[in-house]
Design a protein around this nucleic acid. Sequence first.
DNA 1: TAAATTTGACCCAG
DNA 2: CTGGGTCAAATTTA
Length: 295
Amino acid sequence: MMMEEKLVINELELGKELANRLMNNLKHTSSVDSNKTLISDILRIYQNAIFMLSFNQDKNILKRSLEIDGKDSKNVFKKRKVSEKNTEKVKVFVATEQENGSIDDGHCWRKYGQKEIHGSKNPRAYYRCTHRFTQDCLAVKQVQKSDTDPSLFEVKYLGNHTCNNITSPKTTTNFSVSLTNTNIFEGNRVHVTEQSEDMKPTKSEEVMISLEDLENKKNIFRTFSFSNHEIENGVWKSNLFLGNFVEDLSPATSGSAITSEVLSAPAAVENSETADSYFSSLDNIIDFGQDWLWS
DNA sequence: TAAATTTGACCCAG
DNA sequence: CTGGGTCAAATTTA
């Protein structure tokens, strides 16, 4: 059995134990805080497990990187990259900015452009890794303020960091993920979708969390947090997910407060069936049936 | 003064 | 031709 599989089983067994403990807590009087902690831990464990399972597939994609066409290096403008269109990975998140106005995802970015986008109120900013030229790191991201909620930013990651200058976010960067009117989402379901660069959903890849009716901030919400992961020689070095992942999927309930926090950027889950069943299972695990405010 | 940002021009796919 | 991504000179910031 592979190392990762053992880790996943360990995680799931731990999750089961915590769920039992929670069940016990619910049967008897227990503090809300302790229940919250248990739920957080359980969800973290599931998230870890999913991430671990996805890793084997994901790391193959991580090996891909953009390549600059060296032949055109003397040209002022480089050819648009076409060949990677269908292979390059795109990660889409919605983030809230921090107090200093930045979105700290643990990487250093250099802004290199900004464009007005047809049909959008807000311009899109283009960032590339600060270490693009020193370390040939070809990671790129696009940030655009949400039209529907100015406090949110849609963050799209293209390419993967090959630099070794990853730092832990100094403060919590809030990444929530909004429901968009694209076909990525279906109702209240959470879909895990990989998108090719042309934004057509193809196969499952990204964790996309839906917040239905974002303007009203009601109906469902999910919160999840995780730290930068460290992977060395294919072995997990640290606990990936630290935080909370809260949801209220009961259609009968409404008025839930929404806050979403993620400590770092992208998590990737490769298999949609896995992810769907994962989220479906959460439906069974968590039945708040009442408004639930995270402190 | 080096690094980062701004911004108009350029380029290419559709 | 248009929209969106990138470049690089000018400008700002630390």
